[in-house]
Structures are given as C-alpha cells and as structure tokens.
C-alpha cells in the first residue's frame, strides 16, 4: 500500500478537468515517466504557480468534480510521477476516480462544508495530511491547528488500494 501522507497543494476551483491535469498533446509520450514535467500545465488558477507550488507536495485538496472530461489514466500517472498519491475533494468524475483506485491511489470525498472549512483554515499554510485507510481517518495539521476527519471508503475501493491496483486483483479472480 502506498503512503498517503504529505504536504497539501490547494487548488481552489471546481471542475478541474483531465486536459488541465495533463494536456492531450502529451498522450503520445511512450513512457509514463515522461509526463512528469507537464502536470497541471494548462491549469490557470489565480495564485497558482506550478513551478513553485508542486514542489514538496503530495496531496491535492480541491473542490467538486475533480478529474472531469477525458478518460486518460495519464492524469493519475502524471500526479503519481510528481509524488501525488491522494486527492481530497467534494466529488470526483467517475472515470478519474476509478483510475486512481485502479492504480492503487486514493481519493477522499468530503462534504462541501468540510472542504470549505479546510480551505479557510489551512490554505496559505504548510498543511500536512495523513490518511489511514484502515481506520478511514484523515489527519490534517499545521503549526497552529490539527483536525481529525473520518471519511468513507467502500470495501471494494479499500481492496484496490491494498492490492495496489486492479490488474493483479482481477487476473487472480476472473
């Protein structure tokens, strides 16, 4: 199982799509590793500077419908290559969410009010998140505050995270 902890990148917008996460022109790259430099290249968001903000972060906190649009699994791959294993959001697009779990990565859905309060309390600080999948517990903290938040993860999603993805799981079973 991957390590689901790290410093948080705050992306304060809903409907961030997979074209913004990794533009289509890079889908011709023969190796996943080559996607690294292009993560979030087309995301235009006030205050977001990708050359500065991606450094040292491994958790994304964002709003609703993250990962909408294209089915490209290059989106989770580009995240993973840059050290991001977890995205916390109010909601996710179906295919992106499934792709994350299929790769053994984690998405956490929290109510809109909780996301709001996390943004207002932690944005602008060096916030650190730890997710314990077995306890369905998320801990977020900075130098001033600490919150523990329980989240829902289905049995199936938990199995995929533990198995580190869907291929091995399915090949043994079907």
């Amino acid at each position: 199982m991957k390590d689901f902890s790290g410093y948080v990148l705050f992306l304060d917008r809903s409907d961030i799509n997979t074209d913004e996460i990794i533009p289509a022109k890079y889908l011709t790259e023969p190796d996943r590793e080559n996607l690294g430099p292009y993560l979030l290249e087309d995301l235009e968001l006030e205050g977001f500077d990708r050359t500065r903000d991606l450094q040292g972060r491994s958790v994304i906190l964002t709003r609703a419908n993250f990962g909408c649009g294209s089915s490209r699994e290059h989106a989770p791959w580009a995240l993973e290559i840059n050290g991001f294993h977890m995205v916390i959001a109010e909601s996710f697009a179906r295919i992106f969410r499934q792709n994350m779990f299929n790769c053994g990565m984690l998405t956490v859905e929290l109510p809109g009010e909780t996301i709001d309060s996390l943004f207002s309390k932690y944005r602008g600080s060096e916030a650190y998140v730890t997710a314990e999948v077995d306890k369905s517990l998320l801990t977020i903290s900075n130098t001033q505050s600490k919150d523990e938040i329980s989240f829902h993860i289905s049995g199936y999603d938990k199995e995929l995270v533990k198995a580190n993805g869907w291929v091995e799981y399915a090949d043994l079973r079907y």
């Binding site: 089915s71 699994e73 199936y156 090949d171």
Partner: peptide, 20 residues
C-alpha cells in the same frame, strides 16, 4: 462506458470490467 487504461488492460486480458 469510457474507462482508463487499467480497466482497458483487464478488459483485454479477461473480458470483464467492474462498475459501481
């Protein structure tokens, strides 16, 4: 339904796909 590469891979290999 559209799927990612991992689901596609399992589809090619086993002819199955999981859906919520």
């Amino acid at each position: 339904a559209g799927v990612g590469t991992t689901d596609l891979e399992v589809g090619i290999l086993k002819g199955v796909c999981a859906f919520k």
